[in-house]
């Protein structure tokens, strides 16, 4: 009896709470998946169904054929991929300079950049739109890519990571006569691989999930990213619950799979930004 009271009961309550919590948190995502596989109309049913009476892929087929969502999937993948590759290069170069190269006002410059992170991105959006309009980049992929290419948080992540790497390693390479770019390319980048993976997930997810800026920049519907296309689709197909759920699955599934595969790196990034920042 006392063993039950002291060991098993707390464990039972604890795991009951955890499982109930996990079920509630995952329910919207599971229902999204289930509803996307239901025959048309079945999601508008009382009492609500949690599982399709017959699994159908007709809504996914409609999205790819009739509604051309494949194009938006491609737009999203292309934009997020391009931003990620470019941002990795540019931010890792700057992060390296802030961590390992000596120049005047280095730390003051870095502190200034960090302080600028309190400025909400929305403040810059209106003039940024006008600037890109002048440059002829509104309604182009570049209009979405360019503002995401350099990122203060990305520079910060790389710098924090590199601070832990001893200078002696670099000095040895310099003694051997390696130029700074060579050191960066063949010594620093390989050393940075874990944090580069982290930064890549952050950047890719951020670009994939971004809504407001692509909504502003892209006016031609053929250029829409998935989130913008989905919000647009909702306007015409709000009654087609199953179709909308298929569109939502298509939008979140790639990033969820990416997260599940690379969870460790993603969480390491939050902790590097959250506890040492």
């Amino acid at each position: 009896m006392s063993r039950w009271m002291h060991r098993l009961l707390p464990s039972l309550v604890l795991h009951g709470a955890l499982m109930a919590g996990a079920a509630l948190i995952l329910l919207p995502l599971l229902w999204m998946l289930a509803a996307s596989l239901m025959p048309a109309g079945e999601a508008n049913h009382y009492p609500p169904r949690l599982w399709p009476s017959a699994v159908t892929f007709e809504h996914y087929a409609a999205l790819f054929t009739r509604l051309d969502l494949g194009r938006h999937l491609l737009n999203s993948a292309l934009l997020a991929g391009a931003v990620t590759v470019i941002a990795l290069l540019i931010n890792s170069m700057a992060g390296y300079a802030f961590a390992k190269l000596r120049f005047r006002h280095r730390d003051r410059l870095f502190q200034g950049l960090l302080a600028a992170m309190v400025i909400p991105a929305q403040v810059a959006m209106l003039p940024l739109f006008l600037l890109l309009k002048q440059l002829g980049l509104i309604n182009t992929y570049w209009g979405v890519i360019i503002p995401g290419m350099a990122n203060i948080f990305g520079i910060f992540l790389i710098r924090q990571y590199l601070l832990a790497i001893p200078d002696s390693l670099l000095d040895a390479a310099r003694m051997d006569g390696a130029g700074e770019f060579r050191i960066y390319w063949s010594l620093i980048l390989p050393l940075c691989r874990p944090i580069l993976v982290t930064l890549a997930i952050f950047t890719f997810l951020g670009a994939w999930n971004d809504f407001m800026w692509p909504l502003i920049v892209l006016t031609d519907s053929t250029l829409y990213t998935l989130p913008v296309a989905l919000a647009n689709l909702l306007g015409e197909h709000v009654q087609d619950t199953e179709l909308m759920m298929a569109g939502s699955v298509l939008t979140v599934l790639p990033v969820m799979l990416l997260f599940v595969a690379l969870q460790k790196y993603y969480i390491a990034g939050i902790l590097l930004g959250g506890t040492k920042g």
Binding site: L18, W31, Y46, N209, F211, L226
Partner: peptide, 29 residues
């Protein structure tokens, strides 16, 4: 497992899950 389950909504696309919740909030269904 529990950490990943609780964290999963964070990585989802806001627009997509907002669409899902619109239906979860449907007054009738």
């Amino acid at each position: 497992f529990f950490r990943a389950a609780f964290f999963l909504p964070v990585v989802t696309t806001l627009v997509a899950v907002a669409v899902v919740w619109r239906y979860l909030y449907h007054p009738r269904y």
